[in-house]
Design a protein around this nucleic acid. Sequence first.
DNA 1: CCAATTCCTATCATCGCGATAGGCTTACTT
DNA 2: AAGTAAGCCTATCGCGATGATAGGAATTGG
Lengths: 168, 168
Amino acid sequence: MLPMKSRYALKALVFLARHQADGPVPVAGIAAAEAIPVKFLEAILLELRNSGILTSRRGPTGGYQLRVEPETVHLGDVIRNLSGPMAPLPCLSKTAYHRCTECVDEATCAVRLLMADVHAATLRIVDGTTLAQLVARVDASAAGEAEGQSERCRPEQGPVSAKLDFID
Amino acid sequence: MLPMKSRYALKALVFLARHQADGPVPVAGIAAAEAIPVKFLEAILLELRNSGILTSRRGPTGGYQLRVEPETVHLGDVIRNLSGPMAPLPCLSKTAYHRCTECVDEATCAVRLLMADVHAATLRIVDGTTLAQLVARVDASAAGEAEGQSERCRPEQGPVSAKLDFID
DNA sequence: CCAATTCCTATCATCGCGATAGGCTTACTT
DNA sequence: AAGTAAGCCTATCGCGATGATAGGAATTGG
């Protein structure tokens, strides 16, 4: 499960990307629009500021604002900054690597072999997607919704076993 | 993080796939070989039995054994059976779907759009891999290890942004 | 009948997560 | 200069999931 911290952060960033022209946006405004607990969001935005993605101004007319262009914000970094490494095994994290205590031989660990692929696939998506791209996809989704169209039907399906399309 | 329950289960299944010819293998044997707490593994194998993957016999010479061919065991089902759905958001699970309480509009939810791709990629791997394939990969990995060879360099890399190869 | 083994239920300690409380600091407005 | 709207910071708390253990009952081969 993606932690609430990261979910809220992504929602807030999309919101801020949309309101780039409006100058600083106060926490309360974002929280109200996205249904996020104010104090919780406050802590999240503070972290995003400290990691360099946001700027803040205090006092009246203050608030938060994107510091960098949405095209340069990689969503994987956002998730990592707030919720730590997303490796499915300790031994698959580069920055927080540590040997799995239960692992007899890391080089031939079946679990590791399997999850390494999962991890790589995940990173390819979250690190390969920018905030700007995500905003664009939301727009496309909202537009296609009216026509009952679901864009992005995973075109690069690849030669899988041709079974059912997987669920859960 | 993949729960210990699922990690242990995968290790045990690989072990059992290797010892298919030996008849029933007692829990203690698997636990010793794979460094798994005995009582914990006991509960896990029991669940795998109840879900139809394993058979068991009691008494002396008893133990656990694969009930089906390794080619028919999809690893995604193993993980699901033991640790529940692996959807990164409640609203992405088919069998345990429920609306995200924090989500204002599911159809245009940015988090959902992003994680849907992650989820699909994960399922493609875990449901597209069988126990037999995993055993084969471990063998290949062990063989290539001697020559300093790392097989499976993710050949289907695709046209990503050509940046670094992602970590964490 | 004995011993090995599965089977079943209950219980426990720990930890991370989501959230809240309360106050301090900054700075705009009047 | 005062008032107030906002960010900033620290501490704390309840809750549930997780990983694990204990103890015994049921089964079955030798």
